[in-house]
Amino acid sequence: MKLKSAKDLDALRKEASGRMSIRGDKKRMQIVVHMGTCGIASGAREILNTFAREIDTNGIDTVTLRQSGCIGLCDQEPVCTLQDGAGKEFRYGRLTAQKVGKIVREHVLKGDPVIDYIITQ
């Protein structure tokens, strides 16, 4: 956006301020893909990249995507932890690209957890 007047600057400030509030909003959903050695060897990179693609394709701007290490559920990898706006955590395991698509469509977009894929809640 090119700034040509004080009005433009004010519009930019308001827009940025809105985004800053989103960043600091505790109600924002967070998806953490666990990328310890076990997760990576089981396909966690593809899972994270599929989440990113789905988030991008669906124009979702209320989700933060993060990575973290192994959580000791190596036999269930690839695993992700989804924390919803209320702070409730859902752990999905043995993920595939197809499962990620369904989690985004059902849980992220509609707020309905995909019970079949949950390993602990």
């Binding site: 990328m35 990179r45 990249n49 990113a52 995507l65 990575q67």
Partner: peptide, 14 residues
């Protein structure tokens, strides 16, 4: 392997 895809993951999540 997929170096670009790997670094995409890193940038995206960190």
């Amino acid at each position: 392997g997929d170096l670009a895809g790997t670094l995409f993951s890193v940038v995206c999540a960190n």
